[in-house]
Amino acid sequence: MAALLLVNERRRRKSRCFRQRTVHLDDLTDREVISRYRLNKAAIKELEELCRADLSPKTGRSQSIGSMTKVLIGLRFLAKGDFLSEVSDLHGVSKASGAVIVDEFISSVNARLNNIRFPTDRNDIIQLKRTFYQKSRIPNVIGAVDGTLIPIEAPKENEAAYVCRKNFHALNVQAVCDTDMRFTDVVAMWPGSQHDSAIFDACGLKDYLERTGAGMLLGDSGYPLRRYLLTPKLNPTTQQEEEFNKYHSRGRMVIERAFGLLKSRFRCLHRTGGVLQFKPGKCGKVVLACMRLHNLCVNRGVPEPQGVIPEATESTPYILDNPGSEDGNLRDQIVRLF
C-alpha cells in the first residue's frame, strides 16, 4: 500500500523543465545589443572574460547556466530596472536563479572592474587641469563634485533617515567626474537625508586634497568654499562675478550630465525604473557596479542612449560662504581673471 502511494505521489509531481536559453549576441546587431544591455558586443565580451572566474558554473551538469548568460541577465536587470521575473523569463532561467545571478554579477563587477580611480599621476593631473581650463577658464581644476539621489525601498532600520528632501526614500551618492563624464571618485553609503556638505566633509577625498594640494574641485552652492573646493558667488554684484559664475557652471555641469547619462543607461537608478528593492548596503553596491559599467562605456566609446534624462540642478546654499577668509580671497583672485 505504501509503495502504491509513493508511485502515485511521483506521478503527481511536475516533471523538471529545462528552459531554452535563446539570447545570443550573434543574433543581434550592435545597436540592438546597446539598446538592451547598454554595452556593445566588444565591451560585453570583455566584461565576460573579466568576470568569468566568478560566474562560471560550479557544477558539471549539462543544464548549468554559463557565464555569458549571467552577464546578460545582470546587465539587463541594471539597464532596464525591470521586474526580476521578467528578466529571468527572457533569458530562460527561474526567478530564484535570476536573483542569485544578479547578486553574483554585481559582486563580480565591483571586485574585477577597477576603473573608478582618482588621478594621482602628475601627467594625468596636468592633462586633467588643461581640459577643465579649456571648458571653464578656471585654472587648477581636477574634477567636478555633486550628489545625486538614488531611490530605494524603505528600509526596516532607521527608515526616517533615508527620506530625502524630495520626500522619498533614497541614498545620497556623492561622485566626482572628469570632463569626459568618467567617474573618478564615488561615495555610495549615506542615507538620503544627509546633506552634500556633510558627506564631503566625511570622505577620504577631502583629506587627500587637504594633504596634497593636488588641485580644486568645482562644486555647487551646497558645498562650503575651500581652497580645494571652488563654489559660485551666491550674490554676484559685478560683471566679473557673473562671468565667473557662468564659466564655473559650465565646468561643473559635467557632473550633472554624468548623473543624467548614468541613470539613462541604468534605469534601475532612476524613479522611472522603480526603486532598488534591496537593503541600503546592497543598494550602494548596485550603484557602484553601475558607475563602473558607465566608465567602461566611456572608455569603450559606447554611444549614449536616446533621450538622456536631465539631472535636477537644485541645491541648498551653504550659508557660511567664507567671504574675506583665505579661501574667499583665493576665489576673488580667480574672479579677477574674468
Rank of each mutant, 00 (worst) to 15 (best):
A2Q: 12
A3E: 13
L4Q: 14
L6W: 10
V7L: 15
N8G: 08
E9L: 14
R19D: 02
T22E: 03
V23Y: 03
L25D: 04
D27L: 09
R36G: 00
E46V: 10
L55K: 09
S56H: 12
S64A: 15
I65H: 04
G66Q: 11
G66H: 10
S67R: 04
S67E: 07
M68Q: 05
L78A: 02
A79I: 00
G81P: 03
V100I: 09
V100P: 09
A111L: 13
F118V: 02
P119T: 11
I126C: 07
I126M: 15
S136R: 10
A144I: 11
L149V: 06
I150K: 09
E159K: 15
V163R: 14
K166C: 03
F168M: 03
H169Q: 06
M181Y: 02
F183H: 00
T184K: 02
D185T: 07
G192F: 04
S193I: 04
I199D: 01
D201F: 12
L209W: 05
R211Y: 13
L230N: 00
K233S: 09
P236V: 07
E243R: 15
F259V: 01
G260P: 10
R267W: 01
C268H: 02
H270M: 02
R271C: 08
T272H: 08
G273H: 00
F278D: 04
V286I: 14
C290A: 08
L296I: 07
V298G: 03
I309V: 13
E311M: 15
A312M: 14
E314S: 14
T316A: 13
D327C: 12
R336V: 03
L337F: 08
